[in-house]
Nucleic acid binder design. Structure first.
Length: 479
RNA sequence: GGCCUUAUCGUCUAACGGUUAGGACAUCGGCUUUUCAAGCCGGUAAUCCGGGUUCGAUUCCCGGUAGGGUCACCA
């Protein structure tokens, strides 16, 4: 409410340690939707302060993922902005500036110990079954900080912090959550705990959306805000996304895959956004299928859930299918044709494919199963396959010849599935069982146990090919 | 283990003290039908347990149980 006339500024701040998985993506979606909803600014910032864990090519990969999804940012490393640069490794001066302020205020000091020495103290505390706190070992007369030692924050006021989160409400932490943590590492790079605060301050970020793993370190952040005497942004804790199996939070280890894999499998970006938005948030009217544009309109931080949800790819498939159904025909055609060999790139077979897939990658499976072979080559099958269970070869032959006779009389321009259905239904209704005609027809066209109906098949094949395949079946029966 | 936190059908969720606890996915059944798919109709299925507060608790409070998070020179 205090931000009512203030512009909303959010940021998505991944570290370049690998690909984007659905957890990262959902955070980005909420950041994006939250900013867009309020006519605000959405910033992409790269948190590359851990050089050891950095993975080559990650930044490009992250940008590619976000672009595929259409989550466009207003400021970022690739496009710049008023608070450039947007990579933390290029913002070291800022961190140094605020580090000096903290030193001057007596809120920071050089850590004289080596990493190994601290580790020994930690182990000892562990053995004695008491929590390790660095501040219990705080040096009396720390050396002057020259940048070669870690710079630590000095907690002056050990207390239990309480604060308000826009999703979780009132939160609190024990005083042991407060410790003299490292602001700047011995390699000169800042830690997340420090860097994000400075960046958010300088970039004017109003809302920080992040996972619940940050609840425990929030008191550390608060103590920095206090020491710097700056106003903190709104905190928005997002519920975790659990993996399909088990109850563990979804991570790269268990099933969380690269979001670009979904692109490769033929999922629609708008479907990914739709489904992922729904894990941990839901609109007031229970609307389940929405476009990214509609999401922006519907989105409200107040409707973000508190507890976590499991990722479920069956529901993703359903959402994706719903989005495929809503695609304009020219866009749909473009997508489908990408997956088809040239000889199958025919508008007529699109509906037949679309009702059988939930993602475009399923087309590949149809192709491999030979489900679409009928379209460009004569089916191969044995005589007995033509005979419906309640009839004889002789009767089947008669039925097919009758049907052929009727279809031959049909004009090429009248060769639509509706007309064909009318003709064949009339004939088959006279029989003891419709299957006595319709089954051999279908088989003559497709040569498959499972296939679309003979009417649509016939329309797709066209008059001459239809007659040709009926002739093939008839001669097979005459053998 | 300490601290923090969460808890509605199998899954995602609605409910903001009073509902036959609603919807969606999945599942099952039916319709349609020559098979498959799609579509339409319908069914099964949930408030973790125990105490309070209240005329009345899914909802508020306490305890238990179970889950998650965190305790780095990672973010």
């Amino acid at each position: 409410m205090e931000n009512i006339d203030k512009k909303v500024i959010t940021r998505f701040a991944p570290s370049p340690t690998g690909f984007m998985h659905i957890g990262n993506v959902r955070t980005a979606i909420y950041d994006w939707a939250c900013a867009k909803k309020n006519n605000g600014t959405f910033i992409l910032r790269i948190e590359d302060t851990d050089k050891a864990r950095e993975v080559e090519g990650s930044i490009e990969h992250i940008i590619k993922s976000l672009k595929w999804l259409g989550l466009n940012w207003n400021e970022g490393p690739d496009i710049g902005g008023p608070n450039a640069p947007y990579k933390q490794s290029e913002r070291l001066e800022s961190y140094l500036k605020y580090a000096k302020i903290l030193i001057d205020k007596g809120f920071a000091y050089a850590d004289p110990y080596t990493e190994e020495e601290v580790e020994i103290m930690r182990k000892k505390a562990e053995e004695e079954k008491r929590p390790f706190l660095y501040r219990d070992h705080r040096p009396e007369n720390p050396p002057i900080w020259d940048g070669t030692k870690p710079l630590r924050f000095k907690v002056k006021d050990i207390k239990s912090y309480e604060w308000d989160d826009l999703v979780r409400g009132h939160l609190k932490a024990g005083h042991e959550a407060l410790d003299d943590f490292i602001l700047i590492k011995s390699d000169g790079y800042p830690t997340y705990n420090f860097a994000h605060i400075i960046d958010d301050l300088e970039m004017g970020v109003t809302h920080i959306l992040r996972g619940d793993e940050f609840i425990a370190s929030t008191p550390k952040f608060l103590s920095v805000y206090d020491a710097l005497e700056i106003k903190r942004p709104e905190f928005v804790i997002l519920p975790p996304i659990m993996g399909t199996d088990g109850r563990k939070k979804m991570g790269k280890r268990d099933g969380a895959k690269d979001v670009l894999e979904y692109q490769k499998e033929g999922y629609l970006p708008e479907a990914m956004i739709n489904y992922l938005a729904l894990i941990g948030w839901s609109p007031v009217d229970e609307k389940e299928i929405f476009s990214p544009k509609e999401l922006i309109e519907l989105f409200d931080i107040n409707n973000i859930h508190i507890s976590g949800g499991k990722y479920n790819d069956e529901k993703l498939d359903w959402v994706n299918k719903e989005h495929i159904k809503r695609l304009p025909s020219d866009v749909l055609e473009k997508y489908v044709f990408e997956w088809l060999p040239v000889e199958l790139q025919n508008k007529k077979i699109i509906p037949l494919i679309v009702e059988r897939i939930s993602k475009f990658g399923d087309i590949k499976i149809m192709l491999e199963g030979g489900e679409l072979d009928f379209f460009y080559k004569d089916p191969i099958y044995t005589k007995d396959k033509l005979i419906y269970k309640t009839t004889t070869p002789k009767q089947t032959l008669k039925n097919l010849e009758e049907a052929k006779g009727a279809l031959v009389m049909t004009e090429e321009s009248e060769f639509t599935k509706e007309n064909i259905k009318a003709i064949l239904m009339e004939l088959s209704d006279k029989l003891e069982n419709r299957g006595q005609l319709l089954h051999p027809m279908r088989f003559a066209f497709s040569g498959l146990d499972k296939s679309p109906d003979p009417f649509i098949l016939s329309e797709i094949l066209g008059k001459s090919e239809t007659i040709h395949r009926l002739d093939n079946a008839i001669s097979l029966l005459n053998e």
